[in-house]
Each structure stands twice: as C-alpha cells, then as structure tokens.
Amino acid sequence: MTQTYPLQFKPEMKERIWGGRALEQFGLELPDGQIGEGWMIGDHPNGTTKVMNGPLAGLGLDEIREKYGREFFGTKGYAENGRFPLLIKLLDCNDDLSIQVHPTDDYEGLPEGELGKTEMWYILDAKPGAKIIYGLKDGVDRAALASAIEEGRVMDCLQEVPVEAGDAFYIPAGTIHALCAGVVVAEIQQNSDTTYRVFDYNRPGLDGKLRELHVEDSLNVTAYEGAGASRMKTDGIGGNEWLRIAESPYFVVEKGLVRAPWKLSTTPDSFVILVIAEGTGNLSWDGGSQAVKAGECFLLPANLGGYELDGSMTVLRSVTP
C-alpha cells in the first residue's frame, strides 16, 4: 500500500505580457518579470509540477501518474495513456488578456496530442470597476463576427460583465472570453494549453512582435448559439457547507466556507483538488496534518479516505465527475 497524503506541488510560473506581481500576495516565489500564470498542479508538456512535500517530494505529477495511476487518481480521474485530467492555475491579470476562444475535444484542427479546453474561473480579487469579456451579444453569427474582426470592431460583438471577488464563471469550450485588468483568478480547466486568439488590442508580445491571431480557427470553434456558459454570485453560503459553482463533463467545482472542524472524505472514484481561496487553517488526515493558507493548492489522492479541514477559510473543491 502506497503511503498516501495530500500532495503540494512547486508552481510553474509563466511570464505573460498581461501579467504582474500580484501572486506574491500569496507568499509565492516569483521569478523576475511580468508573471501572469502560476501553474499550481500541472501535467502538461508546457509545464509539469513536482511534489514538494512528504515522501514523494521531487516526483513530477507525470511520474506520480505513471507510478500510482488509478490508485491515486481514482477510477474516473485516471485515463489510460492520458495525462492528469485537470490543470489548476492562479492568474494575475495586471492588464487585459487577449480576446480568445477554446475548441472542444473533437475539433479537427487541434494540435496533435492536445485536448479541447473547458474551464471555470473563481475571482479571488478584483479592483473597483474590474470586468471581463464573457460571450457574444445576442444575434451575433459567424458572418457578423468575421466582418467585425476584419474591420477591427470585434469589441462591438462582445458582452462585458463587471466582476467582484467571489464571482464564479463557467466557460465551456466555444465561449469567447477574456479576463481584463485588475483581477486575480483561480482557474480550474481541462488539461490543455490550446487557445485561439480572436483579437489582441494590436499590442506587441514579450518579444516586441505582434502576437499571432487565429481568426479562422476562432470562427470555426465559436458556439454562436451559446455553449452553456453560466455565472453566479457565491456569497450567502453558511459555514461547513458546499455550494456547487461549476459543473462540466470534466470537473465539478464547489465552494465551501470552513468555520469549524469539518470531517470530509475522498472516494475511490476521484482525487480531490483543494484550492485555498482565502484565510488560513489546517488540513489533517490519518497520519498527519499541516497548516494551509490562501493561494495553496493540494491534490488529495482518491485513496486518502478521511480528512478534516479546520480554521477560517474559503476553499474550492474539485473532482472529476
């Protein structure tokens, strides 16, 4: 029997033209530059995180998958010949992200070995007046979007939504979207790095050149009738109860407020990912415990069994359905 315990990974930090230094607020070590993404739990060619606690320290998530497979990931969380199903990120949007859209798994233009990308956002922090781009305005079809892109007025086709901390957004593949300046976000997504850029404000990238746009792919994968995107305010839940804030074929995400000792358990079906969104507390299990705080993410193996959360904190819990 493998020793099982909550795994914490060393984040992979990514410089982005729109990034900043806000992830330092979580006590994370940032390299120099404009850091836009912290890949907190990742098993992808563009970023594989390594365990930094306990007996498995130093192993990459890919090695954990190969060594412990279904035992750790669960019957629904483990795919033969497949990477870990989810990618967990913290994003610092110091500037506007490009207007973008993601494909579904069955899009024939996908790069080899890649998946589609359905994701969700939980807003950790938002400056006054912060907003996001979230879907098309009613009645915009492919022809209307194509001509708007060509004529440089794509913003006329898009919905802008004001955001504040605690808002949750579900973004199925096919939904045009963009985070805008002034938000810090937890992102739970399919394990994919496929993004099609619709518009990038005509700005140069980190190398000084205009970044590539993917207009034809974007027009092909956009869901003009809507893909089922949904958003919600998540306040108003009581202590030690879960509120489901996103549901897809790839993940179910719930928000919980820890206000007293809370006994929970994994199941053989799926690993559990905990993102500490706010506050501080303690995570304990049979054989150990550790202090936890905002900005930390943990992978609880499916075979962990009982665990307990205590303290005063907001937690996001994700499983594979």
Rank of each mutant, 00 (worst) to 15 (best):
M1R: 02
Y5D: 00
K10A: 13
K14T: 05
L28F: 12
Q34R: 14
Q34S: 14
M40P: 09
P45S: 04
N46V: 08
M52L: 07
L56C: 00
G58E: 03
F72M: 04
T75K: 13
Y78V: 06
F84H: 10
K89T: 07
S98R: 09
H102D: 06
P103N: 05
T104M: 00
D106K: 11
E112K: 07
G116W: 04
K117E: 05
K117M: 04
E119Y: 07
G135R: 09
R142C: 15
R142P: 13
S147E: 15
I149H: 02
I149P: 06
C157Y: 02
E160C: 03
D167V: 05
A168S: 14
P172I: 09
A173F: 02
G174D: 07
I176R: 03
C180A: 07
G182M: 13
G182I: 09
V185M: 11
V185A: 07
A186H: 12
I188A: 13
Q189P: 04
V198Q: 02
D200W: 08
G205I: 04
L206M: 11
G208E: 02
L213Q: 06
H214N: 01
T222Q: 04
A229K: 12
T234E: 06
D235A: 14
G236F: 06
E241G: 03
P249F: 06
P249L: 11
E254D: 15
V258R: 09
K263A: 11
K263R: 14
L264Q: 15
T266P: 03
P268Y: 10
S270E: 07
I273G: 02
I273R: 01
I273K: 01
I276A: 02
T280W: 03
T280I: 01
T280L: 02
S284I: 00
S289E: 09
L300Y: 09
P301H: 02
N303F: 03
N303Q: 05
G305V: 02
G306V: 01
S312D: 15
S312Q: 14
R317P: 07
